[in-house]
Design a protein around this nucleic acid. Structure first.
Length: 273
DNA sequence: CCGAATTCCTGTTGGC
DNA sequence: TGCCAACAGGAATTCG
């Protein structure tokens, strides 16, 4: 599932291919994907708009057009492909964006969970969903005081770290890795964490995400290549998907449990906080 | 308001 | 080997 590092990789890969190109229309095959727009109003609004830049906020891709922002969330398995006018329809193709040069940008998504929405460019960051988002790992504003103020909840720290209004961009894989790095058990109640643990959490979120971005993200079963996007971070995972294998730090067997409704991997010896 | 459960969706996996 | 239920999960929505 694409998390911040995978989405950043998609952004970097896509940018040189689509910046400067102008849309003529979009064929929407899965109607709910462009909600609340109807396919025809979505397509008409895009016509004549040029892609000036592609940004990213957390796991959201933001295509900045002339007067609109096209905000795309890949959710689990969304992928982009570039095609020409004769590109065959892909098996899970749901949206095809057409450019005035005859080319196309194809969105493919097995589970149809992705979302594509249009917002006025001038105010897109001030309205949901972007307006509700927290701070990205590496943002200087993400300090101990900020995080402690957000962790007054009784939920588990895993649940809190998955909450995009607190820290941005972490999903199931990276939350497990960040908790391992910070020596924090995923089941610990957020408000019970010490200041020292919260400090480690920030350091780890920053370092794990930076390392994953540098390696182009992770390619695992539910998220693989599109546009030549093939990350190498899956080879660096310390706990995620390693149930039954020895902890790379202490040798203890990695456990898998269920936390916040998600498969969760941790080392019971290293993660005691 | 808070947090847990449900919903969306389909390919893969595991148990019998 | 074949069948089918369970599972995977981000975030919006519903429920208690």
């Amino acid at each position: 599932m694409p998390e911040l590092p995978e989405v950043e990789t998609v952004r970097r890969t896509l940018a040189p291919h689509v910046i400067g190109r102008t849309f003529t229309k979009a064929d929407v095959k899965h109607v709910p994907m462009v909600r609340p727009h109807t396919p025809s109003e979505f397509s008409k609004a895009l016509a004549g708009q040029t892609v000036n830049t592609i940004n990213r906020l957390g796991k959201y891709l933001i295509f900045e057009l002339d007067t609109l922002a096209l905000i795309v969330h890949l959710r689990m398995e969304g992928k982009f492909f570039l095609g020409d006018k004769n590109a065959p329809v892909r098996s899970h193709e749901h949206v095809r964006y057409h450019f005035n040069d005859g080319g196309s940008l194809i969105y493919d998504d097995v589970r149809k969970f992705g979302t594509h929405t249009l917002k006025p460019l001038a105010t897109h960051r001030e309205t949901p969903p972007l307006s509700t988002l927290g701070l990205e790992p590496g943002d200087p504003m993400l300090d101990v005081d900020y995080l402690i103020s957000k962790l007054t909840t009784t939920r588990t720290i895993k649940s809190a770290l998955l909450d995009q209004s607190i820290i941005l961009g972490l999903g199931n894989i990276y939350v497990d890795e960040v908790c391992f790095c910070a020596k924090i058990r995923p089941t610990t109640r957020a408000h019970r964490l010490t200041k020292t643990s919260v400090h480690r959490l920030i350091e780890c979120a920053t370092s794990v995400i930076a390392h994953a971005v540098a390696l182009g993200g992770s390619s695992i079963r539910s998220y693989t290549d599109s546009l030549g996007v093939s990350g190498r971070f899956q080879n660096e995972l310390n706990v995620h998907l390693r149930e039954g294998e020895p902890c790379l730090v202490c040798g203890e067997t990695i456990k898998k449990i269920r936390v916040a409704g998600r498969g969760t991997y941790y080392c019971r010896r290293c993660q005691k906080a």
